[in-house]
Write a protein that binds this DNA or RNA. Structure first.
Length: 482
DNA sequence: AAAAAAG
């Protein structure tokens, strides 16, 4: 047991933590903060929902405040990169909170919103800049931003930032940073070959690995239902109706594999009288923000998302995550189900696995070392499914109006909060099937210790390469750099 | 093959 007060952080930071009611640091915070205060580079690996944002924010704020400098026009002293706009906004929000009693400025830049305000805000310079890569480079090209004065560089979701889709812009950005700087990488997942690739951006890092990379959150109860693809929608609708009505589910995230799939699921749910909104990269930024805000504030209990929402998003009331389709990159599963069971709370993850997704499931089990508990279809499933209202062609065809907010009349109650303490029981599972390993930690121990992994559970490069190669996605990032 | 990120 230890307290933030013992970690050497400045008084104004401790005051901000106190205001938030944070007293004891999590393991990643306890281990990372002292090294970061010393100015070391660091690779931080810890499970989802264990406070990685604070782990890099608090010591960085301390160091910036301890060495005050005048703001350089169009410059910043700390740069934080995020893979999505929503995560960038959330990180900045958190940092503003932690910096409440410090004289440090926080700015955010990302695409999808007018650039003018961002340019003028940067003109005066800022201490901390949180950004997504595309808009950041745009602003640099427009000479609205220079990175010459960056002292601290943070890659959140570092493995994703160094993966295929991001490595090019990231390499350009890193090339513009001063050589003399502190670099910090954080994630819950870090495939070996990506960690190797990362060495070019970081110098002699301290490695803080609270749990083996890709360890799932401790208190998430994991289930899998084997179901035909064409029956998934009916199963989801039935399960959500029951879960939301009974209060077993307070609010939940549903992940689909495609943007179109997310829209389709939302239309079906709305036709069945379930309030839901979609968030994905084909929506306007205004639509994205509205969907996430509605979900955060409890007006919309069901958010249907692509992997845009898989990483980092922190919404305290989320009691369940549904994988309507399994991710083909197994690390994404760890992040998706990490949207629940955060900050010591419990949660459940329910994955729908069609016949052609069994290889994905196998890869996920191999990576996480956890075998989700098989949850059968409800006994009268086909009967219930037949009674479901079918959305009309018009409902399915029409672009769904975004104006499905309803002035708070359907505000979800907070009474389910007290039930949100331990692993949850699947609504349709009374008894754990024989022979299945528990998928979530119980009081006796953690779900996953090294030796508890199934045979072949080590993350060999061979396994990973096979995982990644599936679908012809090409080689590793090295290929992109060659 | 898909997702994210500039427009």
């Amino acid at each position: 047991m230890s307290y933030f007060t013992e970690l050497g952080l400045a008084k104004p930071i401790l005051r901000a933590l106190e205001a938030k009611g944070y007293n004891d640091p999590t393991p990643i915070q306890r281990q990372a903060i002292p090294a970061l205060l010393e100015g070391r580079d660091l690779l931080g690996i810890a499970q989802t929902g264990t406070g990685k944002t604070a782990a890099f924010s608090l010591p960085s704020l301390h160091r910036l405040a301890a060495n005050p400098k005048a703001r350089t026009p169009r410059g910043c002293r700390m740069l934080v990169l995020s893979p999505t706009r929503e995560l960038a906004a959330q990180i900045a929000d958190n940092m503003v909170g932690y910096a409440k009693y410090l004289n440090l400025g926080v700015q955010t830049v990302f695409g999808g919103v007018p650039v003018g305000k961002q340019i003028s805000a940067l003109g005066r310079g800022t201490d901390i800049l949180v950004a997504t890569p595309g808009r950041l480079l745009d602003l640099i090209e427009q000479r609205a931003l220079v990175l010459d004065h960056v002292e601290i560089f943070v890659l959140d979701e570092a493995d994703q930032m160094m993966d295929l889709g991001f490595i090019k812009p990231l390499t350009r950005i890193a090339g513009l940073l001063p050589k003399q700087r502190q670099s910090l990488f954080f994630s819950a997942t870090m495939p070996n070959e990506i960690a190797q690739l990362g060495k070019r951006f970081i110098t002699d890092p301290v490695k803080v690995e609270v749990a083996p990379q890709s360890t799932t959150a401790e208190k998430v109860a994991q289930y899998v239902t084997h179901v035909d693809q064409k029956e998934k929608q009916a199963l989801l609708t039935i399960s959500l109706k029951k879960g939301l009505e009974s209060g077993d589910i307070e609010s939940c995230l549903v992940f689909t594999r495609t943007k179109h799939g997310a829209d389709r699921v939302v239309k079906h749910l709305i036709a069945a009288g379930i309030e839901a909104a979609a968030i994905h990269g084909n929506k306007s930024q205004a639509q994205r923000t509205r969907a996430l805000d509605g979900f955060r504030e409890g007006r919309v209990p069901v958010l249907v998302a692509t992997d845009i929402a898989a990483r980092g998003i922190d919404v305290p009331g989320v009691s369940a995550v549904f994988n309507f389709e399994l991710p083909n990159v197994p690390e994404q599963y760890v992040h998706r189900i990490g949207r629940t069971a955060r900050a010591g709370k419990g949660g459940m993850a329910i994955s729908y696995c069609a016949g052609d997704e069994k290889t994905y499931l196998r890869d996920i089990v191999r990576l996480t070392g956890v075998q989700p508990i098989a949850a059968p279809l409800p006994a009268n499933f086909l009967e219930q499914a037949a009674r479901l209202p079918k959305p009309s062609a018009k409902q399915l065809g029409a672009e769904h109006s975004d104006d499905n907010r309803n002035g708070g009349s359907n505000r979800r109650s907070r009474q389910a909060e007290s039930r949100n303490r331990g692993p949850r029981r699947h609504p349709d599972v009374a008894v754990r099937p024989k022979g299945a390993r528990p998928a979530a930690a119980s009081a006796e121990g953690t779900a996953r210790s090294g030796e508890a992994r199934p045979a072949g559970g080590q993350n060999t490069g061979q396994n990973r390469n096979r995982n990644r190669r599936r679908g012809g996605g090409g080689g590793r990032p090295q290929a992109a750099l060659a």
